[in-house]
């Protein structure tokens, strides 16, 4: 798989999200609140990051490069802020960074997918489009499907490993029943799951070098989409923080052995068929 092959054009779709661990930390301590608009998280201290699965999608491309494939990498995001992560993507080896500004109505997942697909089409198409399995803010996992459908590409979700031989793509998917291996021919859309593994960090030198890489800004109006294609079909009305009030009964005795016995007795009181050998252990 040498450099005699033409370069594979890979586009990674990356979203900026509030740090899910920070949101979680507020939530578990009961301090998560919703802003006055009723639709966003109020805590301004929550940093914005690249969605972790999207970082892993970039990592998947870097591994293809490590394996000797010539890949061009474009990272594209739909959003109006100027997030730091675009710079990180450059430091990691993105050849091009694109930000699509969409100032009209807040785009829903189908509109985001339509915008991404329109950008890909207008920029000469792609051999492989990589997404994260879901964005950790909306948790929807719809955008990869929307991109695939708009481009009429096949979609493979939940990738833990991506291999390429010529234009033949092999993807190992993490399923609840274990790994599944599928094949398809490029072009394709693949969504990446956390099982792909920890993404690498850019070196300090790459970070400095990447400062010169300026993102290309594209106005969504330039993508030639009509109002119908850009009309959101999901309108967010409100965001609420569900309340969790516990009533845990703590089991405590003078020794581990006695606590354990008390717990086993409570479980039997609750009518649970424990230790009956009814269901085998894996």
């Amino acid at each position: 798989m040498g450099s005699s092959e033409p370069a594979v054009r890979i586009v990674v779709c990356a979203k900026e999200v509030p740090d899910p661990d920070a949101v979680n930390a507020y939530a578990v301590s009961g301090r998560l609140t919703i802003g006055e608009d009723g639709k966003t998280i109020a805590q301004a201290a929550v940093p914005l990051l690249m969605n972790a699965y999207d970082e892993q999608a970039i990592e998947a491309v870097l591994r293809l490069r490590d394996a000797g494939h010539e890949c061009s990498l474009t990272v594209v995001t739909v959003g109006t802020t100027r997030p730091e992560y675009l710079r990180k993507a450059g430091a990691l080896g993105a050849d091009e960074i694109v930000q699509i500004h969409h100032k009209a109505a807040h785009p829903d997942t189908l509109v985001v997918g339509t915008l991404l697909a329109a950008y890909i089409r207008s920029s000469g198409g792609a051999d492989l489009v990589l997404c994260g399995r879901q964005a950790s803010d909306d948790d929807q996992g719809v955008v990869p499907a929307a991109v695939a459908e708009e481009l009429s590409f096949p979609l493979v979700t939940m990738a833990r490993e991506i291999r390429l031989v010529g234009r033949q793509l092999t993807v190992v998917r993490a399923t609840p029943d274990g790994d599944e291996t599928v094949e398809c021919t490029l072009p394709a859309v693949v969504s990446v799951s956390s099982e792909l593994g920890t993404p690498r960090m850019p070196t300090a030198r790459d970070v400095i070098a990447a400062r010169a890489k300026k993102p290309t800004l594209i106005d969504s109006a330039a993508l030639g989409l009509d109002d119908r294609a850009l009309a959101p079909r999901l309108i967010l009305r409100s965001l609420v923080v569900p309340q969790k009030t516990g009533s845990c009964e703590f089991i405590e005795a003078d020794s581990s052995a006695n606590t354990a016995r008390a717990l086993v007795n409570r479980l039997r009181d609750l009518g649970l068929a424990i230790g009956s050998g009814a269901s085998p252990s894996g």
Binding site: N24, D138, L239
Partner: peptide, 10 residues
């Protein structure tokens, strides 16, 4: 949404 930290009504 947010892994269950929030519920979003659409």
């Amino acid at each position: 949404a947010f892994g269950g930290d929030t519920h979003a009504r659409y």
